[in-house]
Design a protein around this nucleic acid. Structure first.
Lengths: 347, 347
DNA sequence: AATTTTTTGAGTTGCGCACATCAAAATCTT
DNA sequence: AAGATTTTGATGTGCGCAACTCAAAAAATT
C-alpha cells in the first residue's frame, strides 16, 4: 500500500542528541574525518539508522559550494549534431547558473591529435571538470590521463576513449547503434537481396568505426542475401557525400540500400533525387537534424538511429557535478539510449 | 569560443547595494510581493540585469522548504509495466528523501470509475500533489478537477485525461506509438499482404484505444495489402491472450502479423509456440518486461514500442515538485519519447 | 605519576535566500 | 496643514549542514 511514510526529517542535531555526542562528532563520522573511536562511530551510525537520517540535499549543497567550472570540447565545423549539443548546453544556462556551474564550450579541431592534446593540456587548473569529444588516439589517451591525474573530473562525450582513465562515458553504444541500423535495413528489405552502400564520415572516428562494425556484423550474420560495398568516406560533408553517392548509384545497379554512419544526409538525399532513386533505395542514417528530418518525412530515409543530444548535455552536467562533489551517479538515469526514429514517432 | 564566463555570483545583497535599496525591497520585487513603486521596481530589475543576478537554487530551496507529499495512484494487479514504474519510484527513494519528498504509492482498481473517483477524493488535504494513471471517464475528470480546485498539483501518468484540468501529462503520445507499431509491421512485411491480428487489453483504456487508432491509420493509409482483424480483448492477461491467439491462428490461416497493444506478451508467445508459428507470424508489442524481452531475444517479437518507466518516474517527481514550488518546467526534458526496441538496441 | 596522544565537546561562522515585523519616510488626500 | 495611505528601511530569524577552532577530557604511553 504505502512506500515510505517514515519520512523522518531528522536533522544532524537530532542525531547528535540521540547518539549522546556532539554535532562535531557526528560531522566527523558522516564526512569521514579522522579522530573518532570505533565505539563512538558505531553509536553515531546506530542513531543515524534509528532516526532514518539523510542529509538534506539543498542544505549540504549550500554549505559545501565548491566551484564548478566545466569545459566542453566539441569539434569545430558545421556538424549539426555537435551544434545541437552545444545548443542544448546553452539552453540549460539558467539551470547551470542557479547552481553556480560555469560551462565553457571550446571548439577545436578534434581530428588532429596534437591540437586536441594541447587543448586538453591547457585545461589544467582552469577547470574542475571536462567533457571531451575525443579521437581514440594514444596521445589523447595520455592527455586525458594527465588531466585525471591532476584531479580533474573527465568524461568522454559521444565518442569514447575506453582505454583512458576517464571517469565516465556520456554517449551511446555505437556498436549497438550500427547493429540496429543493420537490422532495420535487413528487415525493411524483407528478404530481398542486393548490394548495400555505406557512407561514413571518417574511419578514424571511433563512433563511426564502431557503427560500421556493428552494421557489418548484423548484415553478415542475419541477412546473407545482402552484401556490403566498401565504405566510402565523405567527411560528413554534404557535397562530398553527394558526389560519392552519385558514383555508387552509377557503379552498382543492384544497389538496394544505403547506410550513412554520420552526417551529411542532405548530400545523399540530393544524389538520390538527381538519379530519381529516392524511395527506391532504402536509406537509414543517424542523428536527427533539420536535413535528416526532412528526408525522413519525405520518405527518402526510412529510419534514423539517434541519440538525444539534450539528454547527453544534461547527463554530462549531472555526471560532472556528481564527480566533483563526490556524490553517487544514478546509472539508470545516465544511460543514453539508442533510439529508432521513424516518420511516426518523430519528436 | 566561450559561452557564459560572465559567471557573476552576485547575491541578493549585491543587488540591493547596486540598486541603492534595502534587501527587503529586492525581496519584494523578486518574489512579487506588493508595495513597491514602479520606479523602484525598475531600479531593482536594472540592477539584477546589470549584475546578472540569479538566485542560487540550493539556498532558495533551503529557505523555502515547503512540504512535498505526493500520491501516485497505480492500477492494482500484476501489470508488469506498472510494477516497473513503482520500482523506479522506489529506486529513487534516496533522491526523494534528500529533498524531503514523501511519495506514497497507492494501488487501486483503476478500471472502476467509482472506486477511483473515491480514492482521488480521499487525497484532498493529505497531499500537495498527485500522479494518476486514470481512466478517461467523466467521473474521473470531475474528481481530478476537484483536486485541482482544492489547490493540489495533479498530473496524469501513462494514460491521459486531456479534458481534465490536470497540469501536465507524463507519458507518451499513444497515437504516435500505435502508428510506429503499424509502420514497423507494414515495413517488416515488405509488401506482403494478408491479415493482421490485434490483441488489446481493454478498449476502455485511453492509451490502448489511441494505439489502436494510430495503428489502424497507418495500416489503412500506407499498407493497403494488409487488413485488420477485429481486435480481441484479453485484459492484459497471458492466459486469456493465449486462448484468443490460439483461436485467431485457427480461424485465419492467412494471418501474417500480430499487434499487441498492451501486456501479456507471454500468452501470445505461448500460443504461437503451440501452433509452431513463432517467427513465421510477425509480432510487435509494447513495453519492455522480462517476458517481452525474452520473446524479443528469441525472435518471436520483431520489435517493441516502449516508453521508459524510469524516465516517467523521474519526470513525474520533477514536474510535481516544480508545480508545487511554482517553478518552471523544462518541456524538452519532460517529453517522454516513443522508443523502438529491436533485439540490437535492447538496453 | 608524569607525559604524550587520541578522542570528544562546545561553539562559531558562513552559505544565500525566504519570510516576517515594525517603524520611518515619502507621497497622496482632503 | 493635518491626516490617511503608500512605499521603503532596518533588522531579525530560520533553513540544515560544512568546516573550522580551541580547549577539555579520556586513554594510552613512558
Amino acid at each position: 500500500m504505502n512506500s515510505q511514510d517514515l519520512q523522518s526529517n531528522a536533522t544532524l542535531k537530532d542525531v547528535a542528541a540521540a547518539a549522546g555526542v556532539s554535532l562535531a562528532t557526528v560531522d566527523r563520522v558522516i564526512n569521514g574525518r579522522p579522530g573518532v573511536s570505533d565505539k563512538t562511530t558505531r553509536k553515531v551510525n546506530d542513531a543515524i539508522e534509528r532516526l532514518n537520517f539523510h542529509p538534506l540535499a539543498a542544505a549540504a549543497e549550500l554549505a559545501r559550494s565548491r566551484p564548478c567550472r566545466f569545459a566542453v570540447l566539441l569539434p569545430r565545423g558545421d556538424n549539426r549534431f555537435m551544434a545541437d549539443i552545444a545548443d542544448n548546453i546553452r539552453a540549460q544556462a539558467a539551470w547551470f547558473r542557479a547552481r553556480r556551474i560555469a560551462v565553457e564550450i571550446i571548439e577545436t579541431n578534434v581530428f588532429d591529435a596534437d591540437t586536441l592534446a594541447a587543448e586538453l593540456a591547457a585545461l589544467t587548473g582552469r577547470f574542475e571538470g571536462a567533457a571531451v569529444v575525443a579521437l581514440d588516439h594514444p596521445r589523447i589517451r595520455a592527455a586525458i590521463d594527465d588531466l585525471v591525474e591532476s584531479g580533474m573530473a573527465v568524461v568522454t562525450l559521444v565518442s569514447d576513449v575506453p582505454s583512458s582513465r576517464r571517469a565516465h562515458y556520456v554517449g551511446i553504444d555505437n556498436i549497438a547503434a550500427g547493429r540496429t541500423a543493420g537490422s532495420l535495413i535487413g528487415r525493411f528489405l524483407g528478404g530481398r537481396s542486393g548490394r548495400v552502400g555505406v557512407v561514413t564520415g571518417s574511419a578514424a572516428l571511433r563512433d563511426h568505426a564502431e557503427r560500421l562494425f556493428g552494421f557489418g556484423q548484423v548484415i553478415a550474420e542475419e541477412h546473407p542475401g545482402l552484401s556490403l560495398l566498401p565504405p566510402v568516406e565523405g567527411r560528413d560533408d554534404p557535397q562530398q557525400n553527394r558526389a560519392l553517392v552519385a558514383r555508387l548509384l552509377a557503379d552498382a545497379p543492384d544497389l538496394v540500400a544505403l547506410y550513412n554512419t554520420g552526417e551529411g544526409a542532405a548530400g545523399i538525399g540530393a544524389a538520390l533525387a538527381d538519379a530519381g532513386a529516392a524511395r527506391r533505395i532504402l536509406c537509414v542514417g543517424h542523428e536527427l537534424t533539420p536535413d535528416s528530418r526532412r528526408l525522413l518525412l519525405d520518405g527518402t530515409f526510412a529510419a534514423l538511429v539517434v541519440q538525444d543530444p539534450g539528454h547527453e548535455a544534461r547527463s554530462m552536467a549531472r555526471v560532472l557535478r556528481a564527480l566533483v562533489s563526490g556524490r553517487p551517479i544514478l546509472p539508470a538515469q545516465e544511460q543514453i539510449r539508442v533510439e529508432v526514429i521513424l516518420r511516426d514517432n518523430l519528436p
